[in-house]
Structure formats: C-alpha cells, structure tokens
Design a protein around this nucleic acid. Structure first.
Lengths: 343, 343
DNA sequence: AACGACACCGCAAACGTTTGCGGTAATTTT
DNA sequence: AAAATTACCGCAAACGTTTGCGGTGTCGTT
C-alpha cells in the first residue's frame, strides 16, 4: 500500500483540467465556474486530498512550525513549559520541533542551525548552563528568525524574555515562615554563581531585613541536593536547637532536611517549620506535605509562545522587546505550620 | 537585519555561473574544475551558505523529521521516553516534532494528519486513553508512513511495538517481598479495565501462586492514587495487623500507604515491607526510600526510535513487525527490608 | 455586424534544490 | 590535420503549490 499521497497535479490529470484550476477551485476562487468547483471539490474529498505542507512552506516561506531548544526534557519544570507551549501552538496552528541540548553548548549550536535550516517561523530557547558564547544567538537575528528566551535567558542578547521571579518567590516563602512565627530561619542555598542560587538567597535575606530579623551567616548552608543535605547533616543538626524555620532552595533539599531532622527527634512543623521552592510534584508526597512556591512552568510556556507568535505574525514591532516576569505562588501546606502537631 | 538566507541561485548570480554548477561544486562533483570548486566553496563558506531543508525535502521526499504523538508531556515516564527518542534521533540526523494529545481522541486524529501533511519520515505514537477508533492509524499505512507504537500500543493495528512488561515487573516486585519473608501481602490495584491495572495485578497473583501463598481477595484493594489511599485508609488499617507486606500499583500509592501506616503506629519496613511500581523520582524522596520497579522510559524511547529508523531507511522488511518488551528492573531500597529498623 | 464585457480557464514563473542530458572548447589520439 | 576523447559547464525538468497575466468563448449592447 505504499502509495504516494495524491497531489493537485494528479487531480488535474485525472479530471482533464489544469493544476491552476484545481488549486483555485479548492479555494473558491471566483474565476472558477460552480460546476468545476463542485467537480473538483467532491473529487478531492473522495480521494482525501491534502496539500503538501512542504510545497506550501517553500512557496510562502512560512512553515507554521516553531523550534524549542531546551536543556533537559526529563524535568518537571521544563516539561511543564513544553506542555504550555504545545497547547498554545496547537490552538494557533503551529507545530513544535523539540531539541534537547543536554546542557551541551555544541549541541545547542547545531540544534539552532538545524532549526534555521528547516525554516522554522520562530524559536523558543532556554540556554544551556555551559553556553558562554552567543554568536549562534546573534546569527538568528541576522537570519530574521524571531526568538524568545525563557527561564535561562541570555542577558547579552536583547529579545523577548519570560522568566520566573526567583527573588520574589524566595521572599514570599520566607515572609510566610516569618508570618508563622519563625524568628531564626536557616537557608539551604544553591551555588551563588548560578542565577537561581543568587536570586533565591537574596530574596531570603531581603525578607529577613524587611522584618528586622538578623541574618546570621551561620544559618546559610550551601547544599542544594538530597545527597548534599545528608553530607551536611551534622551541621544542620548542630544548629537545629537554635532555629525554628528552614527555607530551602528546592523541594528535594527541603524534604531531605525534614527527614534528617525527624530522625533526630525533631517534629515538623511543631519544632521547625519548613518551606521549599517548587521543582516538581514531590511536595505532595512528602511527610508532612511541603509548603513551597510553585514556578508556573505551564504559564511561562504559554506566555513565551504568545510572545513569539506576536513577532511571527508581525503584530509586534520588530525591535520592541518585552520581558514577562512570573511571580511564583506560595502553596501553603502542613510543613510550615509552626507549632502545630501533625496527626 | 531581516535578510533572507542566501541561496544557491544567489551564489550563482554573484559568481556569474549557473546554479547547477554551484550545486555540483559544493558536493565535489567530478565534472567541475578544481578552480571553480575552490571559488564556490570558499565563497559559500564566507557567506555562510546553508541549504534550504524545505527544498531538499520537497525534492527528495525525505524530511529527516519524525513525529511523536503522546498523551502527556508532563509525566516522568513519557518525558523520559521523549528524551530517549531525542538522543537517538539527534545521533542519526533526525528532528522530532512533538504532539501532545492530552488524552483527546480528536486531537490525536488532527495531530497525525498534520504530521502526514508535513511529510514526516515516520511516527512514534502512544495512544490516548479515549481512542477506540483506529482508522486514523490505518490511514498512516495507506500513506506509506512507518509507525512504531510504544507503551500504549494499539492491538488492532499490526506494527512494531515497544512495551514495558507490567506483568513481569509486578511479579518481580512481589517475589522480592516474598524473598524478604513476607507471607501475607496486600495489593493496591488500579482499575482492571486499564491494561496496567490488569497486568500488574496478574503479575502479583502469579508470584503468590508460584510460592504457594494464598491470594486473599480481601487483600486486594482498589486504589491507585494518593487520595484514594487516604479514602480507603480505614480498610488498610483494619487489615494492617494481618499483613506483612504491600505491593502497590505505583509509587505515589505506595508512599501514601506507608504514611498512613506510619501515622497509625506501624514501622516500615520493620512491621510491613512495601514495594511500588516506578512512576518517577519520588521513590528516593520517600521515607524510608522506596523499593520499586523502574520502567525504563529512556530505553523504551531509544528502542522505539531505532525500530522506526529501521523501517524508514529500509533495512527492515516492510510487513515484518517486531515487538520489543522491556522488563522493568527492581531497585531495592529500604522500604522492603522486612524486620529491619531504619535509623 | 462589430464591439466591449464578462465568465472561465491555462500558461508559465516562482519558491530552492538536484540531475540527466546535451553542448562547447580544449586536449589528445590517429 | 582530422577525428576522437576529455574536461567543464549550462539548460531544463522535476518535487507540489500559488498566482499574475493572457487567452478563448459566449454573451449582450449599439
């Protein structure tokens, strides 16, 4: 059954008319007589004619396809973003080509080139951690391809951007802990050369200052993975008697910290309240359920795609760039109810 | 800077030669003189010429693009599969267009049509739950598009298939519990009209029979989400004194069960050993870390893509289909060490 | 009877490539 | 010196569409 799909030429040949007439008949062009239209349309229907998107794209230089370049797909945040992009794209008639760089600069360069070669109408990109050269991004502009950066933006390239407000998210979470009565809060921080590490820590300290609480450097511990928590467990336990709250840079770190504390006789949230920063669906699984700020990956994806469409379809000035900031939302659960017992 | 990318025609015009010569010079055709080759190649290099993939595809009817149709992207298993597909695809020079059906039959139909319209070289699909009509799959065969089903396969369509062996996975997990000394094991089961529910339950009972253990229907409880566990908490607690093990149809159910038991004074795994079935990275987060069987999404994706390439590149007979079965692997952690204390 | 108006349709070029074939000039062979 | 070979290059068609323009035929109008 391996037959080539039927073309306008085929229809023209079979019906004994010209391809131009078929083409026009199919789109109700006034130059075509009602009979011919009827003939062509019913026949096309019968043989299930579908226009060749490649030919259309080549002629119109419009592919109705966009490219997504992303460090990792297996990551709750990024897959949420993709999902948001996909849904908007689908609604507007766009397809999405997805490229995963695996945090590899070389692959990022090659992926972008492939997308340009395929004449995508626009590109959404979240930079690899190992990208420190930006000419491949500049080339996009020279090729006239609209780009929107999200999450891992490129500060050296002026373009549309959609980001999560890590500073504000951390600030909100910390203020929440303070509101629950915490006076001495520990922060489990990510490396400060990473933007999220820096911004979330600054959001934390900002909230402390705002409430005139001392920010003790001893309370800031560098650990941002489950394993790191176990490695620094002694440090945490040593300080545990002094503190009444923990704000962790991500959920798995927060959860690990809760477990370390629980194994050492502390009760969460009775003795120590805990809040995390959303990196997935773990928060609900934890015991007790973890209060955390949720980064709205789906919304970010939707917003990025909408901005991109704005540029593609020319409803936005070319050199007029926008930065959309999404403030994470606090999801209050049990882990932060200082003083409360959990059954 | 919105300039169209340079074409072979442009080069020909600028250099005062014909497009054919440029084309041949670029691919070292013997008919072209060394000087002209040199001229063309260095010039093409200078202006950063890149062939238009659309034009190439149209002419060769080969797009080097494959389509992926998937129910949900935000799901650890599926995003792992995509990642596996992506990595193989990248290595073989293919791009991937991803379509998310959101378990919607209509969208599945439309997505498939769009992929065919774009002349993808092949399609990887995992069916929506709400698909009970299969003509859209049959149409693919008529259009000569190779298809490989993975995970949610379509039994009515003969094709390549890549699946996880749910029966065997459940059997392995149950046998593991039995090996740890469990005699009376509870099963938290998914609805039996779903394949995974049916297969995993049967794997469970098969292991019991093999070891001549009674399979008590009272021990099979229908609940497959965290919420369902809490809803049926009373039933579980009532039976808890009798049992010494639990095999849950997925990890979040297993974890919820552990928490319910712990809150009622039971110690895991001292009193009751627990095993789950892998649906994500939750198992490590749990307390105690959960013994579970891991479905190898990444491997499944790789295998599916390799099978598809086999058909696309014609190294496999057209009507010769293969079914690849991936047996999940037990990952032994603390939750199943019956009788042991956790610190 | 001649003219304009209108309805309907096809030619050909274009999008960017590749490639069979033919053509010209230079070189080698007799 | 004529013929045969070789080296090199361009024409044109093709992939499947769309679209400006021109062409034919049938009217109706003076």
């Amino acid at each position: 059954m391996k037959s080539q799909p039927i073309t306008i030429k085929d229809i023209a040949r079979i019906l004994g008319i010209s391809p131009s007439t078929v083409s026009r008949a199919l789109k109700d062009h006034p130059d075509i007589s009602p009979k011919t239209k009827q003939l062509v349309q019913t026949f096309a229907e019968k043989v299930n004619y579908r226009p060749n998107a490649l030919a259309l794209s080549l002629r119109s230089s419009k592919t109705n396809t966009i490219g997504i370049v992303i460090p990792e797909i297996v990551h709750h945040f990024f897959s949420s973003v993709i999902s948001g992009i996909e849904d908007v794209a689908y609604g507007r008639g766009y397809n999405a080509i997805i490229c995963q760089t695996n945090e590899n600069y070389q692959r990022e360069v090659i992926d972008l080139q492939a997308l340009v070669d395929n004449r995508v109408d626009g590109i959404l990109v979240s930079m690899s951690k190992n990208t420190h050269e930006f000419t491949h991004f500049e080339n996009l502009r020279e090729n006239g391809v609209p780009v929107v950066f999200f999450d891992r933006i490129c500060e050296q390239i002026s373009s549309d951007r959609v980001i999560a407000d890590d500073f504000e998210g951390a600030r909100i979470a910390t203020k929440h802990l303070i509101g629950k009565g915490c006076k001495k809060i520990m922060h489990l921080a990510a490396p400060q050369h990473l933007l999220i590490g820096k911004n979330r820590k600054e959001g934390f300290t900002s909230a402390l200052k705002e409430h005139k609480l001392v920010s003790d450097d001893r309370y800031i511990i560098k650990c941002d993975t489950r394993e790191a928590v176990f490695a620094k467990a002694d440090d945490i336990i040593r300080l545990a008697p002094e503190i009444d709250g923990i704000f962790a840079v991500n959920d798995s770190t927060a959860i690990a910290a809760m477990q370390v504390l629980q194994r050492n006789g502390y009760s969460i949230p009775k003795d120590i309240a805990v809040a995390g920063f959303g990196d997935g669906p773990n928060a609900n699984i934890a015991y007790p359920p973890l209060t955390t700020v949720e980064q709205k990956g789906y919304d970010i994806g939707q917003a990025a795609m909408r901005l991109l469409i704005g540029h593609i379809e020319g409803t936005v000035e070319d050199e007029e760039f926008e930065t959309k900031i999404f403030t994470p939302e606090l999801v209050e659960r049990t882990s932060s109810q200082l003083g409360h017992n959990v059954r």
